[in-house]
């Protein structure tokens, strides 16, 4: 038994060492630096944190990022759940549909940049379509509407991923419950609200977390389309970190990373607690 324990640890050890060398130990250093002055090495207390939290760019970006998450998550989760439920009842072309939804996962941001420019330009295709219906278009990329473009990019990219996740959850609900409900005269909507929703709650937790984390990757599209200093509404946390990095503000970056890390861990922890409590 002792030998077996040792074997288990030996399997994990090489990978664990790498994780420590490249992530854990340097992050410890970052935590240390977040309390140290930028110039020299004097103890700075909470000064760096104060500086970050009162930084205008940081606050703008944090607000935008939060707004982005609050708009995108419900939209994506609702839409993908709807599609997953519909897709479950679909017989023809089910596999084709699933792969079609997943395709954007394989498309690097660099490949769509060109298309986004053609579609969302002031005289791009989207405005062309709008004008056909006598609607007034916008300069999507260089106005507040850029936020909408970002939301669209995110949903376009992650829809299939979430559909697959939901379907995995739906698959776990036993068919017999639905049949029993139908015998008792429950319609499709009732089935959805009283059987489907309560039963996919555990899966929903994972899906919320994964979708939330994927929202950080939307920066790629934003960056490739409009660069380091985009329209104010889509100036995200990722832009701030990038610009701090370019100006080598190690003190701000350190405090910012630690803050972001804490926020993420607390978010997940709270979500988990509220989830466990209600079940």
């Amino acid at each position: 038994m002792v030998k077996r324990k040792k074997a288990g640890f030996l399997f994990v050890l090489p990978g664990l060492l790498g994780v420590f060398v490249f992530y854990v130990i340097p992050f410890g250093d970052v935590v240390r630096r977040s309390f140290v002055q930028a110039v020299g090495s004097g103890f700075a207390g909470m000064k760096n944190y104060h500086q970050v939290l009162s930084n205008q760019a940081f606050c703008l970006a944090a607000g935008n990022t939060l707004r982005f998450v609050l708009v995108c998550l419900p939209l994506l989760l609702g839409l993908s759940l709807g599609i997953a439920v519909l897709l479950q009842g679909q017989e023809k072309g089910k596999n084709f549909l699933k792969s079609a939804y997943l395709v954007p996962l394989a498309i690097p941001a660099a490949s769509v940049v060109l298309l986004w420019n053609i579609v969302f330009d002031q005289s791009g295709m989207l405005n062309g379509i709008l004008s056909f219906f006598h609607l007034k278009g916008k300069d999507w990329m260089n106005s507040g509407a850029a936020f909408g473009v970002l939301v669209f990019s995110y949903i376009w990219k992650n829809l299939g991923y979430d559909v697959i996740l939901w379907m995995a959850g739906l698959h776990g609900i036993s068919e017999s419950i639905y049949e029993a409900a139908k015998v008792d005269g429950a319609g499709a909507w009732k089935c959805f609200f009283y059987i489907t929703l309560p039963n996919i709650r555990p899966v929903a937790f994972t899906i919320i977390i994964l979708s939330f984390l994927n929202s950080f990757k939307v920066f790629r599209e934003a960056y490739l389309v409009v660069g380091n200093y985009p329209q104010e509404k889509i100036y995200l946390l990722q832009h701030v970190f990038n610009n701090w990095f370019l100006e080598l503000s190690v003190d701000k970056m350190a405090a910012g990373s630690v803050l972001l890390c804490i926020v993420l861990v607390v978010f997940v922890f709270l979500l988990q607690r509220s989830w466990d409590k209600e079940v």
Partner: peptide
């Protein structure tokens, strides 16, 4: 737990630490 937490961190959190190492 460590692995799960690491999995959740976006690049912006680990950017500086990666740079330092």
């Amino acid at each position: 737990m460590l692995y799960i937490i690491m999995m959740m961190m976006p690049f912006q959190v680990t950017m500086l630490s990666e740079y330092l190492v």
